[in-house]
Amino acid sequence: MKSGKPRRLDAEATRSLRKEFLEHVKELPDGEKVMECIQCGTCSATCPSASRMDYSPRAIVAALRAGDLEHVLESDSVWLCASCYGCTVRCPAGIPFTDMMYELKRLAMARGLLPRARQASVMAGTFAETVNRLGRNNEVALIRKYYLRTNPFAAMGQMGFALRMMKRGRLELSSHRIKGIEGLVKMLSTVEQEGAK
């Protein structure tokens, strides 16, 4: 692992993590097929992010079987998935890999198991905040908040881009809030009260 953090495996936590994952995955269409993985590696060969992952998609299933998912979630792996669905369409066992990656991201967020490469998780949280407030995304608001929370200096590198966009009137400087925002908020809080994943 790039961070070189020593392993700390808590047997009980690991078991419950694995159990929760398998329960959730079985709710996905074709999710139960994860048990039929033959470790052929087609997913990892297909994945455009695999070369930068500590654990490639194939290795993640191997770790699941070994009962070591916690280690996977704390590594630079699932947040590098760009959601291209290449693995999903090629898997000879029909495992919905991309949906499984989303499930792992949700588990990681819920349990606070985040690796060094966690920027995508910050992006997801910031995105949801923006959308919950407006009903729609506003890219300028999103990116501003995202850089403040991750690396404000990196925002400097985007100044040229922002200027070119502004010159063409492509920067969304005012936010549009949908009329039905109250209804949408009620809908989302209903889901939350139910404790759905």
Binding site: E103, R106, M109, M123, A128, V131, G135, K197
Partner: peptide, 22 residues
């Protein structure tokens, strides 16, 4: 009229149920 954000890839990483509601 008055459509809202689809939820995108980002919301799916947070809550599947909410993403589907959106």
């Amino acid at each position: 009229s008055d459509w809202n954000c689809c939820g995108a890839t980002a919301y799916l990483a947070l809550s599947e149920a909410k993403a589907f509601v959106m």
